[in-house]
Amino acid sequence: MSGEWKLILDGFVIAASGAAASMLYIVSASAGYVGKFTVAFSSLAVAAALTVAFFRWLQPYLNALDAREAASTAKAAVENDGAPANTASTQRAQQD
């Protein structure tokens, strides 16, 4: 699988973790409203864990998307001016 399609697959996994977290917090509230407290608390615990996972995975993923853009921006600047653009995103790419 190419790096591009791996990025898409990773994106789906991250999206699925966020979606599952949001579903479970609603299921938790619904269960609590009709007295199913065991289901409510266990759903809430899994939702919390998935929320943490979602945000931990999301940031590096967005950084990777930014790095792709930064590389292109730098190339465009080279193409246009013969010198790299001094932007925040190209500085991030340099650090990477």
Partner: peptide
């Protein structure tokens, strides 16, 4: 509503 919007909105967000 969860089945219609949850995964869809997060796919929109991430991808």
């Amino acid at each position: 509503y969860l089945s219609r919007f949850a995964l869809a909105l997060f796919v929109g967000a991430v991808l």
